[in-house]
Amino acid sequence: MHGPASSGWLLVALCAATGAYCLLRMRSGVEEQRRAAGGEALMGFGMAAMAVPAAVFTPPAWAWPAYAVVFGAAGLRALWAARSGRHHLHHLVGDAAMVYMALAMAGSSAHGHAHGSSGVPLLTGMLLLYFTGYVLLTGVRLLPVAVVAGGGTAGDGTAGGGTAGGGAADGWGDRPELARACRLSMGIAMLAMLLTM
């Protein structure tokens, strides 16, 4: 039991730290970044709470339906926002995954954690494939930005995503490589959580 509990605490720490950084990103001067950061902060803190080991804290029965309602509402918001940009579709998939996990946890706690079938359910498998692809793609996209940032060419504006002034006007909360690293860590955490289902 020590192994799963320690990995659960690592997930809690990763997701909570990511959520806290996303709260800092909400101070950005770019409205679109503030909106995205708000949704990602909700996701980070929600995943952190969901990852707390059951041996330490077992949520009350009403908590899982409450999770489903909160992330269902966030998913509707992401669906509405997807009219202006495709990247909101990822938030929609993440919110749907949270609703799915909350409903699965509500069902398993209602049935005494009994699993009647073997193998991976179809929806779990599809979410695992999606988040595996997302993690790999985000990791690949993160590498060139890190090389440019480390190559001493900070003044050429190739990082993108900042304010018009560049340089000192861009706070560390507006750095696109940090936002990508945030999304990468949440994608990895989502994979870990789906694998435990």
Rank of each mutant, 00 (worst) to 15 (best):
A61E: 00
Q33K: 15
L123E: 08
P4M: 11
V30R: 10
T124C: 14
L23D: 01
V140H: 10
L89N: 03
V70Y: 03
R34H: 11
G72D: 02
G116W: 11
P121R: 05
L42T: 07
S108G: 10
V135A: 15
Y67M: 14
P176E: 04
F45P: 09
M98S: 03
T153W: 09
S185I: 06
M126P: 02
A13C: 07
D174K: 14
E40P: 00
H115G: 13
L92T: 13
D156H: 04
V69S: 07
P53M: 10
L137F: 14
G150M: 07
H91E: 04
L136F: 01
A78L: 05
H91G: 09
G3W: 08
S28L: 12
L195F: 06
V12W: 03
L76H: 09
R27T: 05
G166C: 06
A149R: 12
T58G: 15
W172F: 12
H88P: 03
G133K: 00
Y134I: 01
W9C: 05
M98K: 03
A82D: 12
L127I: 10
L23N: 03
L42S: 11
L23Y: 00
A51K: 04
G116Y: 12
I188L: 15
A5V: 15
H113P: 00
A164T: 15
S6T: 15
S84P: 04
H90D: 06
V148S: 10
A106Q: 14
C22L: 07
H113I: 10
S28H: 08
C15R: 01
G187M: 06
R141K: 12
G166I: 08
A168F: 06
W80N: 07
A16M: 07
H111A: 15
G125M: 11
A49L: 14
G161Y: 05
G39P: 04
M105V: 12
A41W: 00
